[in-house]
């Protein structure tokens, strides 16, 4: 039971980080980021390539996942999003543009994975980095290090983001421009810079969640696409406009996916495991029907 809980906590921390990334980009730029899927997969492949090609422990490559994601986020912003925001494109067009970016990233990731497979003969189609993780024993139970590292990183992100958004000048400016872009720009806030920061941090967090997930689930190029519903559900359960609400929402969705299905299986039988993808959907449906403003609605009064 303990190992299951540890794994559930690790998994849901990753979903939480990813959901926060979606919420950050959405609240800052009104862009629902479909490219999140491929960013997550890219994070997985950074960890994989580093571990297999250079050796050492996978944890060494966590900073690199963030760097790669931030760079990709910057490319998406500079290449696509910036011009659409300037042209005041509709929300659907903003979404579609990130879908295009997602397909491009997916294509390049697959080319990279083919390259890894052919050149270095490493299993780049499907990989399980879990075996490279550090295992230690608590009593009779084997615990993997990711069960501690992932929540730790989550807490660090919460603290850092909170400090950034409340204590630094640029963070406060960012919050202001999220609340009211026109007013913020009149007061001299560089809106463009806040967009850049949103994509930098959002991209970095997306790949970070992917990198951490590669130590929990099987990695493959379409892994991000498969899991994207969990991330989206987390972001919407959290409220989509609130970064920390979405982080919490992601945690909740991840936990209910892992523990909820175990609970259901103990009641209904093992056949129900196959329907695990239905749980984020149920969370999504319940939230949208009962409390559309999400978890954030419990803490923050949304002004019309």
């Amino acid at each position: 039971m303990l190992d299951l809980i540890v794994k559930a906590v690790a998994y849901s921390s990753c979903i939480g980080i990813g959901a926060a990334a979606i919420a950050l980009i959405y609240s800052a730029t009104k862009t629902f980021n479909f490219a999140h899927a491929s960013l997550v997969s890219w994070g997985m492949y950074v960890m994989f390539a580093g571990t297999y090609l250079l050796g050492y422990t996978p944890y060494l490559y966590i900073p690199f996942t963030i760097l790669v994601g931030a760079a990709l986020g910057l490319v998406i912003y500079g290449g696509v999003n910036r011009w659409l925001l300037k042209a005041k494109a509709s929300e659907i067009n903003l979404m579609m543009s990130t879908l295009g970016a997602d397909l491009v990233l997916f294509g390049f990731l697959n080319i990279y994975s083919d390259y890894l497979l052919q050149t270095y003969k490493i299993p780049a189609k499907y990989f399980v980095l879990e075996v490279k993780d550090v295992v230690f024993k608590i009593g009779n139970v084997n615990i993997r290090l990711i069960g501690i590292i992932a929540p730790l990183i989550l807490v660090t992100i919460v603290i850092l983001l909170h400090m950034f958004l409340t204590k630094t000048k640029i963070g406060i400016a960012m919050r202001a421009s999220i609340e009211n872009p026109d007013l913020a720009s009149v007061s001299g806030v560089n809106i463009d810079l806040t967009y850049v920061l949103a994509w930098l941090i959002g991209g970095g967090l997306a790949t970070l969640s992917g990198g951490l997930l590669s130590l929990i689930v099987t990695g493959y190029t379409a892994a991000g696409m498969t899991m994207i519903v969990s991330f989206f559900a987390g972001a919407i359960v959290g409220g989509l406009y609130s970064i920390f609400g979405s982080l919490l929402g992601g945690l909740l969705v991840g936990l209910s996916e892992f523990l909820g299905i175990t609970l259901l299986a103990s009641i209904a039988g093992g056949w129900i495991y196959a329907y695990r993808p239905a749980i984020p959907l149920a969370a999504l449906a319940i939230t949208l029907l009962l409390k559309p403003e999400g978890l954030a609605g419990f803490f923050v009064k949304v002004r019309e």
Binding site: N93, M96, S97, L99, L103, F106
Partner: peptide
């Protein structure tokens, strides 16, 4: 030098981006 399957993804992705940017 790459599999055309992935090339297709990249082309469609670029196509979507170009349409949204230049000819919505």
């Amino acid at each position: 030098g790459v599999s055309p399957e992935w090339l297709e993804y990249i082309l469609v992705g670029l196509l979507i981006i170009i349409i949204v940017l230049f000819r919505p």
